[in-house]
Amino acid sequence: MAEILAQVARIEGLAMITIRADLTRAGDALAEATGLPIPGPTGITTDGVRSLGWMSPDELLLILPQADKAQAMQSLDQALTGEHALVADMSDARAVFDVTGPRADDVIAKLAPVDLPRLAPGTLRRSRAAQTAAAFWRIPGGLRVIGFRSTADYLGLILSEAARPGTGLAPR
């Protein structure tokens, strides 16, 4: 019996804060408040605990442990004083899955119209997984996938199905 292509694990305990602002004006203040460099377009920066992803020209996503959320919300609100900006706690709207294993790329490649070999580390790719919106980036050993909590059951199911034993891509 062949091995599954990758382990699919639901990750709990991560908070997500959406930041909307003029990043050229507020970039320095945001970098200081988040403790991370501001990522360039489609980038994601991390210190191993927190990550800061580029979502659109005026939107960032801060991902961090739930325990650090309240403090981070406060620092961000302070950093954006006087700016036309938004800091919103999106933690309950999202679901997180880690897809890890030597053939994790195959799992994602089956579900998203994305050229996985060209997905460099430090890139956050917003796309879709089959019929639901998702974003993913490389982590040690595989990829982290985020989607909407409202479609989390579906997302978990299609990820597990795509990882079924013996269904790897490009066997040669």
Partner: peptide
Amino acid sequence: PYCGVQAEETEL
């Protein structure tokens, strides 16, 4: 032109 992603039709 905003994010540089080569998006396939179903992403648009």
